[in-house]
Every structure is written in C-alpha cells, then in structure tokens.
C-alpha cells in the first residue's frame, strides 16, 4: 500500500533518506507540469523544479502536519516560479489586459454559453487548447491549471497564491470567460 505524504515526511525527519525519494517520485511530474504551464520554457521549468524540491527538502522540518502537504508543496512551487519570473523579468502581461490590468472581455461577455461541440471531438484541438491557455494572464492560467489539471480546490488555491477565496472564484470565472473568447475566436470560420 502506498504511504501517505505525512508518513513519508515523518520517515524523512526520522532519518530515512529514501522517504524523500518517494516524495520526489510522487510530485515531480505534476509540479513540473504546473511550472511549465506558467513559464512555457523547458530549461527554466527544470531549474525552477529543482529549486522547488531543494527548498522542500531543506524546510521539511518546518512543515506543519496540520495542513495539506500538497498545498504546502504547491505554495513553494508557486513562490519559486514567481521569483524566477520576476528575476528574469519574464512576466509577460497578456494582450487581453488594459493598462490598469483589467480584462475588458470578461466584463462584457455573457458567461452562460457552452463551448462549440467540435472542440471536444477533434484531437488536433489539444494544441489549440494549449495555445489558448498560454495566452491567458498568469493568474488565470495558474488558477485553471491548479483547479482542473492538478485537481486542487479553490480553498487550496487561495492558500497557495495567498489571495482571498472569493477573489479566486471570481478570477476563475473570468479566466473561463476569457478562455472561451480565445477559443471561439480562434475556431471561428475565417471570412
């Protein structure tokens, strides 16, 4: 039977070197995928993932077992990624934001329309989806990735990005609205 995160942490703190290997095996791929979604750069993602897990290893004795290990780990990954992006001045503002950082599409579109059915059916649209997601502002991209791909709750995401829960819910809705706009514009028949 697989050990829980708490068991692996306890074993590591008790001196079992192999326990950290278990944590690394379990979380390396999802953490890397999350980081890559934010950076869109393989080399940078590898460096950030390396930094993240080294910070995790150094600070495991400070981890409070009352809280979810997954949330704690993603918080470190989130903070490390932002630090890297700030250092490299690589935070690119989305072309969908105005000078005040507001997204004018999300305030003007109705949000109760489903996406076109053909988007579900065509395999090649996975590339389209990935490209569309990459065009979103960093925070929307992060929330959608954490919620749908990493399967974290809004409460956990709020803790990771250190924002109020209602802000996360609202940013999530805006992210979906903008994603729909990008997808439908891209998929619209060209005249």
């Amino acid at each position: 039977m697989d050990k829980t995160d708490q068991q692996l942490v306890t074993e590591h703190l008790d001196g079992d070197e192999k326990a950290f290997h278990g944590i690394l095996k379990r979380y390396l791929k999802p953490i890397y995928a999350f980081i890559y979604r934010l950076t869109d750069n393989q080399d940078m993602s590898e460096d950030i993932a390396q930094d993240t897990f080294i910070k995790v290893w150094k600070n495991l004795d400070k981890y409070d077992t009352k809280y979810s290990f997954k949330t704690w780990l993603y918080t470190i990954a989130h903070n490390t990624t932002l630090d890297w992006l700030k250092k490299k001045k690589a935070i690119v503002f989305s072309s969908f934001e105005d000078s005040e950082g507001e997204n004018y599409f999300t305030t003007s579109l109705a949000d109760n329309t489903l996406l076109p059915d053909e988007l579900f059916l065509q395999e090649e649209n996975k590339k389209l989806l990935t490209e569309s997601l990459d065009k979103l502002p960093l925070l929307y991209k992060e929330i959608l990735t954490l919620h749908y791909q990493q399967e974290l709750s809004f409460i956990e995401i709020a803790h990771i990005v250190n924002k109020p829960l209602e802000t996360i819910r609202s940013q999530h809705r805006r992210g979906l609205i903008l994603l729909r706009k990008i997808l439908t514009d891209t998929n619209a028949p060209k005249n």
Partner: peptide, 14 residues
C-alpha cells in the same frame, strides 16, 4: 464543460 476540456490538455513531462 470546461473541466472536460481542460483536463484533456496534455500534461508536459519532465
């Protein structure tokens, strides 16, 4: 609707 789409995005492997 979105959950289905977004979960379908291929995950990048290290």
């Amino acid at each position: 609707n979105y959950a289905q789409i977004l979960k379908g995005i291929p995950s990048v492997e290290p």
